[in-house]
Design a protein around this nucleic acid. Structure first.
Length: 581
DNA sequence: GCCGTTTTCGGCCCGACTGTTTTCAGTCG
């Protein structure tokens, strides 16, 4: 079996770290090239290990050398260069490089002068005060490194937090900072603003009057468990013993440039700076300005800066340097979907299901408050033993919905169900009973350990069922908790497209399922349609539609591929076509 | 190591902070 992209990325990450030691610097052109290759593989849903050298070289960012290494890894499970470097540098030296503040130069120095090649050895050297004797290091460095070791595991760059947890912390911190006197705006930036699935550390950008005590307040926020650094315009903390949060304070006039800079990605920023140079301009976190005169040409808004680089504004979710800049230049970027484009919610629970927390009336009131034109009530069906509704209960619920309809006009209420896809691809009830629903969402809730071939067959069987309009959270993954089932995505996209079955973009931050790389692949290679749904179990979850829209943006999904952006009659026509076929 | 409507060779983004320094190296984002 060919190695997964994840295992290719893992070995390339090792290659990067060992090459840093070999080069004796953290940013050689070689390591940057490897890092770029890792980024493009991470963004790809195609399995790179199955490709030939010439096919790999066609991928932007992968050249001859990296292509050969990937092919070598596919064939042997190892890369010769990595194995050679492992003999020269013990693998424990990579542990040392994870300590914040320790780069390749210092790690090499430790090996050369003190024979220190692992964390216990370093701790011992610090206790004997041997570090201060090394060139370029002193008592303060020794102290700083000791502190970093004690915090290791909390804020080393290896630990990443699922977006759902990071978002909660970020919103809490932003709300606190907005209340500090002199603060004009506070926003989260970084990978969180790009809607990455996991977050390394949280970047918060603040504009404030010059005398604002914002950094002082920041380091004493409730939940702060360590202060890593603190100056007038910059501070870093660890919050809840869990996440590093970095604060930057900039003048209001530089807000756009700073927001772009701190949103990244690094690769996107580098590409934009090259583009600026081609135009006789230079871009930094303060402004876009002319190289000779230093005259500022744009700074206060992101849109101004993109426009001066002859680009349309690029939504943050796409800023990964994986084709968005050339698409922005040629006008072929999809118009970003916003929550306001969503006219219906096709996956909503009530307390009729065991896991629903709001009543039918509360959920319908919530739909009206959210400005929806239509909604599908999709409580769990009978096969989900803990939560599901029997036939009798389903019929009772249908009668209740019938009573509700006149009261809620012009909201259109559909009676559906969230059907459970069994291991063999079958679903609840029988064809006759299923035919009387208005709509069907079918989802995987168990048997996550079947082979990819079996999972593919299972999903395709459900897709071919005429009672199924949408496949809910298709992979079943829970970010940071459960890896989702593996399946032949191209085959599933094709089956869904040919049967008029939509694939869900589940809005819950724990799910965000389908994942962005699958969405982009599906958009590019098939005609499949999508449904952005909240899977709400409580009225408060309607607002999650924001995250579903962001996930669609990250997956390059255009508006006309999302069925719940259709007006009510067109949507009903779409849903009926499959059910009546 | 990657890349090319100025290039198959010669370039490759930009700045802050820290600690150790007499002018800068290392690290980080």
């Amino acid at each position: 079996m060919t190695p997964s992209n994840e295992s290719v990325i893992a070995v390339l990450r090792q290659l990067v770290q060992y090459t840093k030691l070999e080069d004796g610097q953290s940013q050689s052109f070689r390591t940057r090239a490897y890092e770029k290759a890792i980024e493009v593989i991470a963004a790809s849903s195609e399995s790179v290990a199955g490709l030939s050298i010439s096919e790999l070289k066609k991928i932007d960012g992968i050249g001859d050398s990296t292509a050969r290494k990937i092919v070598e890894f596919s064939a042997n499970g190892t890369i010769g260069k990595v194995e050679r470097l492992k003999k020269r540098f013990p693998p424990t030296m990579l542990d040392l490089m994870r300590i914040p503040g320790l780069g390749p130069k210092t790690v090499l120095l430790l090996q050369d002068r003190l024979g220190v090649v692992d964390v216990p050895g370093l701790t011992e050297a610090i206790e004997k005060h041997q570090l201060a004797s090394l060139p370029g290091l002193g008592a303060k460095s020794e102290e700083k490194i000791a502190k970093a070791i004690s915090l290791l595991g909390i804020h080393s760059n290896e630990t990443r937090t699922p977006i759902a947890e990071a978002m909660d912390i970020a919103r809490r911190v932003v709300a606190e900072l907005e209340g500090v006197e002199g603060v004009l705006t506070a926003e989260y930036a970084g990978s969180l603003r790009r809607h990455a699935e996991t977050i390394g550390d949280i970047d918060i950008l603040v504009t404030a009057e010059t005398d604002s005590p914002v950094t002082k307040r920041f380091v004493t926020l409730p939940g702060v468990t360590a202060v890593l650094g603190s100056g007038s315009t910059k501070a870093s903390i660890v919050i809840d013993d869990q996440m590093q949060v970095d604060l930057r304070v900039v003048p209001e006039a530089a807000f756009g440039a700073a927001l772009m800079y701190f949103t990244g990605s690094k690769a996107h920023n580098i590409a934009l700076r090259k583009r600026a140079l081609d135009r006789g301009l230079t871009l930094n976190e303060y402004s876009l300005s002319e190289i000779g005169s230093g005259t500022v040409v744009a700074a206060s808004t992101e849109a101004d800066i993109y426009h001066r680089l002859n680009l349309v504004w690029i939504t943050p979710e796409l800023r990964e340097d994986t084709g968005e800049i050339s698409a922005a230049e040629s006008g072929s970027l999809p118009r970003p979907i916003s929550v306001g484009d969503l006219r219906g919610d096709l996956h909503v629970h009530t307390d009729w299901s065991g896991d629903g927390r709001s009543t039918m009336v509360e959920m319908l009131d919530g739909a009206v408050l959210s400005g929806l034109d239509y909604i599908v009530i999709t409580d769990h069906a009978e096969n989900l033993a803990m939560n599901g509704l029997s036939r009798e209960r389903m019929l009772e619920q249908r009668a209740v919905i019938e009573e509700m309809r006149p009261r809620y006009r012009p909201l259109t209420i559909l009676h559906g169900a969230e059907l459970n896809i069994a291991a063999d691809g079958s679903i609840d009830y029988d064809a006759e009973f299923l035919a009387d629903f208005d709509f069907g969402v079918a989802s995987i809730h168990s048997h996550f350990d079947l082979s990819p071939v079996d999972q593919t067959d299972r999903l395709i069987a459900a897709i071919h069922n005429s009672a199924v309009n949408v496949i809910g959270h298709p992979s079943g993954r829970m970010i940071g908790r459960r890896p989702g089932v593996r399946f032949d995505s191209d085959a599933v996209f094709e089956a869904a497209a040919s049967t008029g079955t939509a694939l869900e973009i589940n809005s819950h931050l724990h799910r965000l399922d389908l994942q962005a790389s699958h969405l982009r692949r599906a958009v590019e290679t098939s005609e499949v349609m999508f449904a952005i749904s909240t899977d709400a179990h409580h009225t408060s979850a309607y607002s999650n539609a924001n995250w579903g829209a962001a996930q669609a943006r990250k997956g390059w999904v255009p508006l006309d591929r999302v069925i719940n952006t259709l007006d009510t009659p067109t949507f009903l026509d779409w849903a009926g076509r499959k059910r009546n076929s």
